[in-house]
Nucleic acid binder design. Structure first.
Lengths: 415, 415
DNA sequence: TCTGATGAGGCGAACGTTCGCCTAACCGAC
DNA sequence: GTCGGTTAGGCGAACGTTCGCCTCATCAGA
């Protein structure tokens, strides 16, 4: 083939002007050229199929309208949701997304950053929670371009968008306590992960307050997978057969727990209730349908990207945002009476428009006072009232203003 | 801040050479510079934190080492797997991935292409099955850069990597027939989708051959979702309560079907057996564990990217690749006796090294003769022998050589 | 007729590379 | 002492843009 791309010069030649003039027109620089030549240039560009060379453009303007996303394995549905949300938010604001995934072993974060910086991305969004304890990534992310993360970054000064993990644990505990359970166990994630510790903290605190403290025998550790949850549930039953309820820190482990209970012939929830966390799309269709704490992953990704673009544009931006979580009660705790509710809002409709600014909050040790009201759809829950006593902005994102803060972040995604 | 990036000139200045010389050294152009200055330049680059500007590099070499991936919503786990596989394959060969997702309505494919071409990607990988019937995308993809697709592209001349859908339907049918079922139903995807029709074709053919033809009353259509499968299963039971087995064309719909059966109190598989398709990670942990046809999504993505990079490098490449599928029998057809097999190969270990070249095959009307032997792990299946009678390369990828073919595609991913 | 806007578009430079060719110095051989 | 060859590195051009400034008409007002 001849040449794949036509340049500004080609367009200009066909229109009989200098290429700089063509540049002006094609950049929408209106009032500097007569209407007639303008038309001519536009027509020439159209006929020739001109596509601006973003490389050259970026070279001279030193901005690429491209942001980098560093993710752990996107085969993980949860992480993929973040990225999807982020990509869409970026696209709405005219940016492309360059993705770069870390190796399975969780290292190579530096390689990803390097790859992105060489391509001169305008900013970096980190979604690689496996690296959260790597002290090096803080410096990498504080480096040459703006960054935002959806997980903890050592050393601070990188805005974080996440959800209130302690609140999540608390919601699960209060739901089970409200149903009358006292011997409650939990299947947690790997110890080194912050989310594990935060969810456990909220969970334990609620149990303590209710005088139903969590003994070590009822805490079992797994690896986020269904297989891990399966094994963990087996161990749990062996260790303490009197347990009547269990909170798994994610839905995959909860799925494994349901399977384990089925295999040993225990009925859910009559013999043992199960609460998950994440509210995966299939949660309403598990057997039995799984009660779970809904985490707005996609919206978190959108919010994080919105924040990043605000930083890039040098707009005011929040320094920390907490997305709202809520418990969705289903049959795995309420029992078969709670028929599959096909109207349950399991869709991931945006909650960004509810974003509002609060004074103080931190992702990991989020203000432990207060719990959001239980989901109003809950019904048929014996004693399901008393744990909905305290209130807070349970359905709103909470943010901490950044240096230039004041305006609502996440306004753009609504455009 | 001062300047974020240092240029070749900065490095050269510090090392006391011209920037062109620095360029030579930094590109590994060894034997052209004395060892001493070489060291000096390398040291300067290191100290200054030099990162080559890929924009300028791409501008002059007209190749960006970046490929574009166009995907429908990556929130779909299946599609995300493709992309993950593709990204890893790209990364192994030194390319970055620019991702671009189509709008929810499935349009805007053109916008994605444009966005990628402006950034001068070296090639495009299409993973947007919703656009498979859009006649325009063929021309877009045949346009300026090499392209590969994981779904049908109108007009041809774009290599396609996929799996043998007809074989998939056949495997499901033969498994159920082998278990003695005769009144078998199916829940299929949207009619306009090719995969729906191909899977149905293979399924129907196997039933016909066994003299257990599929009446319209046992064919019900859904939308790939668990909710859709739930509703469809309800309709099915209402229409024909004598059905003893059902094949859902994907695992999400199968999950919904399991839920529906549970809700109306039918036991699986005693009252109704269920076979899914995709073999999602949670399939072994559903209640009961779901028999499913495993599709190697990740490997498909890897293979597709390998093919694309081969095209870009102007290597020989196949024109069409079919990845192997296999049925994984579990309790939803075999019964509770088949305890959860935690050694079942549910992992997605690469099958690429098994790739081999055959003479002729097409994705959609794949040679209907022959079926792969049932998975050898199957046991306890009454009459599970007779449908393993015919044989073929059931676990190998089948490819059709492209114009320059002859060499094994997919060799690179093994590097 | 001169002056000074104003409108239309040209022109040079710069962005940070790569690439091929050129030059200068040195060295050994005749 | 000249020649040819090698080694080390310089130099100009090109890639496709954007940006600011310059030039040249044209035209109205004095």
């Amino acid at each position: 083939m001849a040449q794949t791309y036509v340049s500004l010069k080609d367009v200009a030649a066909r229109a009989g002007v200098s290429f700089q003039t063509a540049s002006k027109v094609l950049n929408g620089n209106r009032k500097v050229v007569s209407e007639a030549t303008r038309e001519r240039i536009l027509a020439a560009a159209e006929e020739l199929g001109y596509l601006r060379n973003a490389l050259a453009h970026g070279l001279v303007t030193s901005s690429t309208y491209t942001v980098g996303v560093i993710g752990d394995d996107l085969g993980d549905w949860v992480l993929a949701q973040f990225v999807v949300g982020a990509e869409q938010a970026a696209r709405r604001r005219g940016h492309s997304v360059l993705i770069s995934t870390t190796h399975r072993d969780g290292t190579d974060f530096e390689g990803c950053v390097r790859q992105l910086l060489e391509r001169r991305v305008d900013g970096i969004l980190a979604a690689a929670p496996r690296s959260e304890n790597d002290p090096g990534i803080g410096d990498l992310l504080r480096g040459r371009v703006p960054a935002v993360s959806i997980h903890h970054v050592p050393g601070g000064s990188v805005p974080v968008v996440g959800s209130d993990h302690a609140e999540t644990g608390r919601l699960a505990a209060e739901h089970l306590l409200g149903l009358g359970h006292r011997r409650i166990a939990t299947i947690v994630g790997p110890e080194e992960r912050r989310v594990t510790r935060s969810r456990l903290r909220g969970f334990r605190a609620a149990l303590d307050e209710a005088g139903a403290a969590l003994p070590d025998s009822r805490l079992v550790r797994a690896d986020w997978t269904a297989a891990g949850g399966f094994t963990a549930m087996g161990d749990l039953i062996a260790r303490d057969p009197t347990v009547t309820a269990v909170f798994a820190q994610n839905d995959d482990m909860a799925t494994g727990a349901l399977a384990a209970l089925w295999h040993v012939g225990r009925r859910v929830p009559d013999d043992c209730a199960v609460v998950g966390c994440d509210d995966l799309p299939q949660a309403p269709f598990l057997v039995p349908p799984l009660t779970s704490v809904h985490i707005p992953f996609r919206e978190t990704g959108e919010m994080a990207m919105a924040l990043l673009l605000d930083r890039i544009d040098d707009n005011e931006h929040a320094d920390r945002v907490l997305m709202p979580v809520r418990l969705i009660p289903r049959a795995s705790t309420l029992g078969r009476a709670a028929t599959l509710d096909r109207t349950t809002p399991i869709g991931r409709s945006s909650t960004l428009d509810q974003a509002t600014i609060l004074d103080q909050a931190t992702t990991d040790s989020a203000d432990p006072a207060g719990a959001s009201p239980e989901n109003e759809k809950e019904r048929g829950s014996p004693g399901g009232k008393d744990h909905a006593s305290r209130k807070r902005s349970g359905t709103r994102a909470r943010t901490v203003p950044g240096p230039r803060a004041g305006r609502k972040p996440g306004a753009h995604p609504q455009e």
